[in-house]
Computed example of a mutant assay.
Amino acid sequence: MAAQHRDHHDNGTTSGQPQNPREKHPQPDFPQQDQEHPGWTGPMDPPPDHGEESYRGSGLLTDRKALLTGGDSGIGRAVALAFAREGADVVFTHLPEEADEARETARLVTEAGRKAVAVPCDIREEAECRQLVERTVAEFGRIDILVNNAAYQMSQPDGIQAISTEQFDRVLRTNLYGMFWLSKMSLPHMPKGGSIINTTSVQAYKPSPHLLDYATTKGAIVTFTQGLAQMLAPDGIRVNAVAPGPVWTPLIPATLPDTAEFGKQAPLGRPAQPAEMAPAYVFLASEHAGFITAEIVNATGGTPLP
């Protein structure tokens, strides 16, 4: 079955009319597509929707200062766009080879009237994380919101024997070490009322064997989030996470062997678009979530989770 392409900007957020969630974005089967890591937005078919035409801000994050990792594309770009349209300035990271992608995210933030600072950074390195926090404080004076979103995965259908020590180290250092260092280093610059939001995954609860190392880190992020939230509650800092299901981002054609049926396994029958994840991050960062900490917002397309 060919991909059922709708206007990928038409997600119903501006029409006021409810839409069938199965049909509001493209549905598999998609064209098979393969990219080199880390992947690029431009060649993707269908193109991801980051909320460019649909997201409308309402001042929920006016004058907040946000630090976001992995903001060049996918969920990170959608979050940066939404934060900016809600009134926040954004420092975001990207890999050096993702500079073109980062420029597009920066354009979306500045078009919303907010400041964008794109920083090439390898969060696997403690020194680079320290420099990132120092750069953010130099730009903004404080960090109101930290979003630990950057991640690395690589499918290994042949199982644990195919996961090299190099890959295992890269996955853990990207997904866990970076989150740990940035949380620790940001806290001295985060006022009471600050918010840390981590990106976990449906993989934390329902691990796919071919993503064993990635799923392991996503389970650890759930534990880290809940433990850190209890630790920081007396300081008035909230810590939560978002657990996406399948989301159509450049990471998919860059790391998975089969993109044609990606997302079909979700009860809603399709992958999410990045734009559908961003409102969860906005909510958790906002005063509307003032009594919410140590929580995981599951956005899985209907997959039941514990």
Rank of each mutant, 00 (worst) to 15 (best):
Ser58Val: 08
Gly141Pro: 02
Gly141Cys: 09
Ala260Gly: 06
Arg114Ile: 02
Val282Arg: 01
Ala99Asn: 02
Thr136Ala: 15
Thr69Ile: 10
Arg103Asp: 08
Gly57Val: 12
Arg173Thr: 13
Ile292Thr: 06
Asp169Gly: 09
Ser201Glu: 08
Thr217His: 04
Gly87Met: 09
Ala294Gln: 00
Pro246Gly: 10
Val133Thr: 02
Leu284Phe: 04
Gly39Cys: 11
Asp10Lys: 06
Thr110Gln: 12
Ile237Gln: 08
Ile143Asn: 09
Ser15Pro: 02
Ile123Leu: 00
Trp181Ala: 12
Gly245Ile: 02
Thr303Val: 13
Thr259Asp: 05
Ala80Val: 05
Thr136Tyr: 10
Arg124Ser: 10
Cys129Phe: 02
Ile252Asp: 04
Ala3Cys: 14
Ser208Ala: 10
Phe224Arg: 11
Ala289His: 01
Leu68Phe: 08
Pro209Cys: 01
Ala99Gln: 06
Ile145Arg: 02
His9Arg: 14
Gly57Pro: 05
Lys192Glu: 12
His8Cys: 08
Ala127Glu: 15
Ala299Leu: 12
Asn20Leu: 10
Asp63Pro: 12
Glu287Leu: 02
Phe224Thr: 09
Ser201Gly: 07
Asp235Arg: 15
Gly194Val: 11
Glu36Ile: 14
Asp29Thr: 12
Leu172Arg: 10
Thr93Asp: 02
Phe224Gln: 15
Phe30Glu: 02
Val282Leu: 05
Phe291Arg: 01
Glu276Met: 11
Pro274Gly: 04
Phe83Tyr: 15
Glu111Cys: 01
Ile292Met: 10
